[in-house]
Amino acid sequence: MLEVKNLNAGYGPVQVLWDISLEVGKGQVVTVMGPNGAGKSTLLKSILNLTTRVKPKGEAIILDGKDITRLPPEMMVKEGVAFIPEGARVFPEMSVLDNLLMGAYVPQARPHRGENLEKVFSLFPHLSERVHQKAKTLSGGERQAVAIGRALMSHPKLLLMDEPSLGLHPLLVSHTFKAIEKINRQGVTVLLAEQNVFFALEISHRAYVLESGRIILEGEGKALLKEDYIKKAYLAM
């Protein structure tokens, strides 16, 4: 579904990513993990063309056969790519409903508004009680749910999620990952950037380890849990 080849990117004059190549198969959940500052967020943002590209000649980002390397960010959602940023970033002054409806702004999502809203509320039933509440008054977990719901409303093929577990307490984290799994089973491909290795690898088909802007390890999801490197670096074993 998604192929990234030789991506070099950063912010202005500062390069963060070096020669990144990865693949996300259709219908899969793929995790990119690594410590803080490794470049996970930058990777996701680079796919969306929100960062500065270095060496623009050598690289390619291909979505479902289509070259999206130079596509402007506002066109990404039209191609079926939805983004859930770190910290949710819901529209604070808008109600839960307005946030969700905003997600369905793209023309292709409008006819599916009703059915997608139902899907969102069945995934996150507690949101249906807060439909008209202003987003800024919600708790961290609820905002996360709104952000995920908002992304789903755009009827996406591919979901990019940046550290969904950040700031959430363990029970919520488990809920969140169960929701991601459900979403995946409904047919959405997911590319995840996460520090919380345990939960992420449990639901991932494949994973990459990113360190200092380079990919140093890749493999099958659960299998990686057994890798010594992972055990030492992330699981304190």
Partner: peptide, 24 residues
């Protein structure tokens, strides 16, 4: 309205609105 919503969204978080397909 949808446009009205897009306007409000842009006012509150231009980058996220962009990622919803809004042309600033």
């Amino acid at each position: 309205t949808d446009i009205g919503r897009a306007i409000r969204a842009t006012a509150q978080d231009r980058e996220m609105a962009r990622l919803m397909g809004v042309r600033a």
